[in-house]
């Protein structure tokens, strides 16, 4: 089977690691060879962060390169735009419409780019941009953006929701499990 490439991108501190942990729990159980790669350290301090998730019958490189991603799951619009060049032709980009100012915008060196979703669409990319943060808040916490996005992803890929819920039971602390399952369902129902 050909390798499927998923990228999870966002801003350090947004909770991208939980999303990859849940996928890392589910995919090996489906019989795939899996490699997940992320850079720890400096970028986790509010920088641009990326996690590569690759699965298939046999995966060699842990890295996804430009033009190779089947799916990009973005937690923030500017980051969706930044990693766009990694999307494969015919790949799917899912992004939260949330905007977090990077330091050059905070210092006034430049503005936050306007109309990013339109610009992304103009390149011909298959974009799904939605107010994920509101859904996360509805589920109970802005921190559940990661699981809402996984709900959307599950709907698009057809991976069974039960697998995600089992993974939530395994990985997430008990007091946050129900909230995360609600978040997942809200994402799953978006389409």
């Amino acid at each position: 089977m050909k390798t499927t490439n998923i990228m999870i991108v966002g801003v350090g501190g947004q909770g991208t690691l939980l999303a990859s942990r849940l996928l890392g729990h589910i995919l090996p159980g489906m019989g795939y060879d899996v490699k997940i790669s992320e850079v720890h350290g400096m970028s986790q301090r509010g920088g641009s962060v990326v996690t590569f998730v690759r699965y298939g019958s046999k995966v060699a490189s842990p890295i996804i390169e430009k033009g190779e991603a089947d799916y990009i799951i973005a937690f923030e619009q500017l980051e969706a735009a930044r990693w766009l060049s990694y999307l494969k032709k015919g790949g799917k980009l899912i992004t939260s419409s949330q905007q977090i100012d990077p330091m050059p915008v905070i210092t006034g060196a430049c503005g936050y780019p306007e109309g990013l979703d339109e610009k992304i669409k103009e390149t011909g990319a298959d974009l799904l941009c939605a107010d994920i943060l509101s859904l996360a808040n509805k589920a109970g916490s802005p921190k559940s953006v990661n699981v809402v996005l996984l709900g959307v992803f599950a709907r698009l890929t057809g991976i069974a929701p039960d697998l995600f819920k089992e993974a939530i039971d395994e990985i997430v602390k008990e007091k946050f499990r129900e909230m995360n399952k609600t978040a997942f369902d809200l994402g799953y129902a978006i389409l």
Binding site: R45, S48, G67, S85, K89, A109, C110, P113, G124
Partner: peptide, 19 residues
Amino acid sequence: APEKSASIPDLPVRPPVMC
């Protein structure tokens, strides 16, 4: 040579920052 993929130019960088 790799195929050229779509991109959006001149995006502001996002360097790591103090929390």
